[in-house]
Computed example of a mutant assay.
Amino acid sequence: MFSAQGPSLRELAVQALSSVERGYDLLAPKFDHTPFRTPDGILDAATDALRPLGPFEQGLDVCCGTGAGMRTLEPLCQGGITGVDFSAGMLAQAREAHPDAEWVRADVRALPFADAFDLAVTFGALGHLLPAERPALFAGVYRALRPGGLFAFPIGAPPPVSSGLYWALLGFDLVMRMRNAVWRPPFVMYYRTCPLHAVRNDLTAAGFSVATAPMTSLGRRQDGSPRYRLVLARKPGEHM
Score class of each variant (00 low, 15 high):
2 F>W: 10
9 L>M: 02
13 A>L: 12
14 V>G: 01
22 R>K: 13
43 L>P: 04
44 D>F: 09
45 A>M: 07
48 D>Y: 00
49 A>P: 12
51 R>D: 06
57 E>H: 10
57 E>S: 12
65 G>I: 13
73 L>T: 02
73 L>S: 02
75 P>H: 02
82 T>D: 09
88 A>R: 14
88 A>S: 13
98 H>M: 00
99 P>A: 00
99 P>T: 00
100 D>F: 10
101 A>M: 08
113 F>Q: 02
113 F>A: 02
118 D>F: 04
119 L>P: 05
127 G>Y: 05
129 L>F: 12
129 L>C: 06
137 L>S: 01
139 A>Q: 12
140 G>V: 03
143 R>E: 09
144 A>W: 02
144 A>L: 01
145 L>W: 08
156 G>Y: 00
156 G>M: 14
156 G>N: 05
157 A>T: 06
168 A>G: 01
169 L>A: 03
171 G>M: 04
172 F>E: 01
180 N>T: 09
182 V>R: 14
183 W>D: 04
183 W>N: 13
190 Y>K: 01
190 Y>M: 06
192 R>F: 01
193 T>C: 02
197 H>L: 07
200 R>T: 10
201 N>K: 15
202 D>T: 07
226 P>Y: 07
227 R>I: 14
228 Y>G: 00
229 R>A: 03
232 L>R: 11
233 A>T: 07
234 R>W: 01
237 G>A: 03
239 H>K: 14
